[in-house]
């Protein structure tokens, strides 16, 4: 292809795309967040199959039904899998190095059938490790109510 058919003579424009969407987290996630403000871990349960979703989901895909029961789960759980993050995603879409690895774990709470991805505090991790939720009921942003996990005593 001849160069003049391409982009080399055209200045590349950087076009920002920053729309603001007003998603509702939905009734289920609202109850999840409200529960954590009181130090409770609330999960939804499918009445048909008993599958327990945490974070709570509104619909059980397996039963094609509303997961409309609520259960309170303990703060403890198990690390199902993890990664040591040596980088973070930068606004330009590339990965930039961070100081010291940070552990991201997939935790399955006792009594839950699904996982939460969160930071694991305190260093040291293995699959099967027992952990406990670190809640911050005073967090300004509801997304920070669950600060992460640390090793269970």
């Amino acid at each position: 292809m001849a160069p003049n058919e391409g982009q080399s003579r055209v200045p590349r424009a950087s076009i920002p795309f920053n729309p603001v969407f007003g998603w509702s987290v939905g009734n289920w996630m609202e109850q999840f967040f409200d529960g954590m403000k009181e130090g409770k871990i609330l999960a939804s349960r499918c009445p048909a199959c008993g599958r327990v979703y945490l974070p709570p989901r509104m619909i059980c895909e397996r039963c094609f039904a509303k997961a409309e029961e609520w259960v309170e789960l303990p703060e403890t759980g198990t690390v199902e899998t993890f990664t040591e993050a040596h980088v973070k995603l930068a606004p330009n879409g590339t990965f930039e190095d961070i100081d010291g690895p940070e552990i991201i774990a997939m935790v399955k709470h006792d009594g839950a059938d699904t996982c939460i991805a969160a930071r694991l505090e305190g260093g040291g991790v293995s699959v099967g490790m027992r952990v406990k939720a670190v809640l911050d009921p005073s967090a300004e942003n509801v997304l920070d109510l669950l600060a992460g996990y640390r090793a269970a005593e």
Binding site: W23, E80, T81, F82, A85, L143
Partner: peptide, 23 residues
């Protein structure tokens, strides 16, 4: 998930796949 994982900023295509790899 826009209501949780996306806003918490830990997961992306590579970190999520690293969780898959370890599992």
């Amino acid at each position: 998930d826009p209501t949780f994982d996306r806003q918490r900023g830990l997961l992306n295509e590579v970190s999520a796949s690293a969780l898959q790899a370890r599992a």
